[in-house]
């Protein structure tokens, strides 16, 4: 690509490498070597049960976000196509509120403020499940809406012209191609929610994987090992899932026509 070449011309290739090397050397020189030498990863093994339990909660929240998100996102997306304008408006408002405020604030609101309205105190985990479910529904609604709008108009018109009942029109004609086109987007969104479970964990202290790692740190006064291990786990899983999604996306787009 020529434009890449042009940009490359802006930064002399060798100069670039020299800067990188210098940066790396600077970092190595300033490392706290005594600390690095005292690394002990044995804690991770000692606390394996706690960490695994935490990971179970992380998985639970991730799967829940995906399932609740797809189910309610699909329902809300169908609602957003309704001829009845108050329903469209309601879905729109819901999506905007949950997409344009931070997840942590939603979680805190649900855990601390909502019980004052309902009179029902929820445990941290239940609040977390409600919060991530509500947000997932909002994000997946947007994705499903895009998928539905990508279905050619003629398909919907043909369904109307055949007199298909609304249920059949949605489940057999509109949703199958709509979902097919957005599968990669759905999966990418679920990877985002996998990452967001750490916010639920730490924000409400529900004892997810990351909170468990932080607890190990607090117990042992070793911060670097558990936290770096936790970061590495998120990195490897998130990165690998992203690669699978990309591969699936390529295969799906090749399968078309």
């Amino acid at each position: 690509m020529t434009r890449a070449g042009t940009m490359a011309g802006l930064a002399n290739r060798w100069g670039f490498h020299a800067v990188l090397l210098a940066l790396g050397a600077l970092m190595l020189a300033n490392l706290n070597w005594p600390l690095v030498q005292s690394f002990e990863f044995v804690f991770i093994w000692e606390y394996r049960i706690a960490l695994l339990k935490g990971f179970g909660i992380t998985l639970l929240l991730t799967v829940e976000a995906g399932v609740v998100g797809v189910v309610f996102g699909t329902l809300f997306a169908i609602g957003s196509q309704s001829a009845y304008s108050p329903l469209r408006w309601l879905v729109g408002a819901y999506v905007e509120v949950f997409r344009n405020t931070p997840l942590l604030v939603q979680l805190l609101w649900i855990h601390f403020a909502l019980p004052l309205v309902t009179g029902i105190n929820t445990t941290a985990l239940v609040s977390g499940i409600i919060g991530i479910g509500l947000q997932a529904a909002a994000y997946y609604t947007e994705i499903m809406r895009a998928g539905i709008q990508a279905v050619p108009r003629g398909q919907v018109e043909a369904a109307h012209a055949l007199g298909l009942p609304a249920w059949t029109r949605w489940t057999r004609v509109v949703l199958p191609p709509a979902i097919r086109t957005v599968i990669p987007a759905l999966l990418n969104q679920n990877i985002s929610f996998f990452k967001a479970t750490a916010i639920v964990g730490l924000g409400l202290l529900v004892g997810d994987f990351f909170t468990a790692a932080l607890r190990v740190s607090n117990d042992t006064f070793h911060f670097l090992e558990p936290l770096t291990f936790a970061a590495a786990v998120y990195l490897v899983l998130g990165w690998q899932a992203g690669r699978w999604t990309l591969r699936l996306e390529r295969r799906l787009s090749r399968g078309e026509r």
Partner: peptide, 24 residues
């Protein structure tokens, strides 16, 4: 890949607790 795969909150906590230790 690294900074897009690690959750922001994990990164924030890691920098807060570990970076000062790592470079003293």
């Amino acid at each position: 890949d690294l900074f897009r795969s690690i959750p922001e909150i994990v990164l924030i906590i890691w920098v807060f607790y570990c970076l000062p230790l790592l470079f003293d």
